[in-house]
Design a binder for these strands. Structure first.
Lengths: 323, 323
DNA sequence: TTGAAAGCGTTACCAT
DNA sequence: ATGGTAACGCTTTCAA
């Protein structure tokens, strides 16, 4: 293994100059640079990252904390990895299964300077404890945290949901069901509020008996559809789903039951994933990848001393064939 | 930020002794240890990982190369992360989108000692080029590589598929369809061979017109079911699926078409994921997490000087309600 | 433009 | 059981 010193010896220059070549310093003559680069190539030289990190105090690695990896957060993950990479940062993933001790491992890695920053997708550690790690490096969260000290790039779900309702109600839908996500999450609460407020505003019934909590997958959607049919009450004329997967399940099951969509039932998804595109499901475009970019931008200031603006994000209704 | 030297000064001992405490060396007296630990706690001391890595030449990080993250490889990913963690290693994921330059980044990180080893889930870099990086650290692959220099923990799909056939044929199934995966992968070829050999052995027809390539998801499965019904020929009496998701799709669509399962059509999945359990699909148990463990075990020798045995793995038929 | 030398924070060898 | 000190491989300041 050849190192800086070896290159320096062979080239006849000092380690400092070789280092300058490595870091593209302008204060090196063309010839010198050429000579040194030549020797590096011959020796198949590679700088040692650990030495660089030790010297600079930066690892160029960012940790990402998530309970598990699933399709919902994949656009965020991939979006973040991509923008980070563009700026020379690598992403290292901590899957925690919502285990606090595993989460602590990630926070400790921030202290130990194994990562320069942390981005939280989901985490069960208390906001207060998370905050105690802020002094070791910047931390940003996707989910909204109770603690204002921790930056967040979450979007207010209220607006997105309202968009869907303002689309459905003018079309004459009065009885609207909801397939929801995690019961106690801030997101779910916002959506529920949006629904209840809209219904009150238009003087329409709030169908609590058609709330279906904890729906995440295609199969959940199919289950919801069957459950709706088994209600003693008449079928709602529309359903808002927690995400496109659930909407896909509802759609498939509805067709299986020979219901016409949107004739008998209108369906609105959420997120605008590829699946909704494929199946032609009306949905709310949720700029998840852009949120991930914002997360990196938020980190950029403390991390690199470069302030990057937060993109102004908004939901958007994508009308397709299910409404 | 306090460091070893600071602790040494304050405790009155040398850096060497403090280091011994850190590394649980037995050659430190109880009192000394206690004193030093006490001071560490007071100063909220954390050892710097970069310094450790530079000094030891180990990062305790293992890179994982994959085209993208999806549900199929998730058990492998999670299985590997878990076993690695148990032995003090962290996993860092390189998603490459099958882009060779991104893959090269991962290999370069092995050279630069950012990771101690590499495990390949999927990669498009030529086996020859991959081999050229072997000298920088151990590399192991999940998929079978052409190059014998690179260890692999792939299992021979032939056996698993044969298991399914030996289950179906004695039950009287003579016309069997196949929903397959990547057309040119070694896995798919093995499965196809297993099918064709079994059919020849029992003197049954090889139904090439009921080969459905490139099936991966629930929706693909539903598509396959519809396609089978649209064939001019009579429906096969059974179908082997590339994975449980596809099987789930076939099952759902079959029911939607009012077919009896297994009466009109028997269905066999692959992998024994939670989904097959939930839906009661007969499937072939594929010990993916155990393969991931084997991958780590394979790395353990060159990585830690500790030889860990390869678990002898085998497929297993899990009979449920679809056959 | 270039060089010398002092860090960066550990580990590990050789003494004692 | 403990200490002194040379690595580890790079960056960065200060001089020249």
């Amino acid at each position: 293994m050849s190192n800086l010193e070896r290159i320096a010896k062979l080239s006849g220059f000092s380690k400092a100059t070789v280092s300058r070549v490595l870091n593209h310093s302008p204060h090196v003559s063309q010839e010198t640079r050429a000579t040194i680069l030549q020797i590096m190539k011959e020796l198949d030289y590679v700088p040692n990252r650990n030495a660089i990190s030790l010297s600079t105090g930066q690892t160029l690695q960012i940790g990402m904390i998530t309970s598990s990896i699933n399709e919902i957060m994949l656009p965020f993950l991939n979006g973040f990895v991509e923008v980070a990479e563009q700026h020379g940062f690598q992403t290292i993933i901590y899957t925690t299964n919502d285990d606090t001790s595993k989460e602590r491992q990630a926070f400790e890695d921030l202290r130990q300077k194994r990562v320069d920053a942390l981005v939280i997708i989901s985490c069960v550690t208390s906001a207060k404890e998370v905050e105690s790690y802020c002094k070791y490096g910047p931390i940003v969260s996707w989910q909204r945290m109770d603690n204002p000290a921790i930056g967040s790039v979450a979007m207010d779900q209220f607006k997105g949901y309202t968009l869907a309702l303002d689309h459905l109600i003018p079309k004459g839908h009065t009885r609207i069901a909801n397939a929801l996500g995690r019961t106690y999450s801030i997101n779910t609460r916002s959506r529920q509020q949006a629904y209840e407020q809209a219904m009150q505003k238009y003087n329409l019934p709030v169908l609590r008996q058609f709330y279906y909590p904890s729906t995440y997958t295609i199969l959940d959607g199919e289950r919801v559809m069957r459950a709706m049919l088994q209600q003693s009450e008449a079928l709602p004329s529309a359903i808002l789903c927690s995400n496109d997967h659930v909407a896909a399940g509802v759609l498939c099951e509805a067709r299986r039951q020979h219901l016409r969509v949107p004739g008998d039932l209108a369906i609105v998804g959420f997120d605008d994933t590829e699946l909704s595109h494929t199946l032609g499901i009306t949905t709310i475009r949720n700029p998840i990848a852009a949120q991930a970019q914002n997360a990196f931008h938020l980190l950029s200031g403390p991390l690199r001393g470069i302030d990057m603006p937060q993109a102004e994000l908004c939901f958007e209704l994508i009308e397709r064939t299910t409404t």
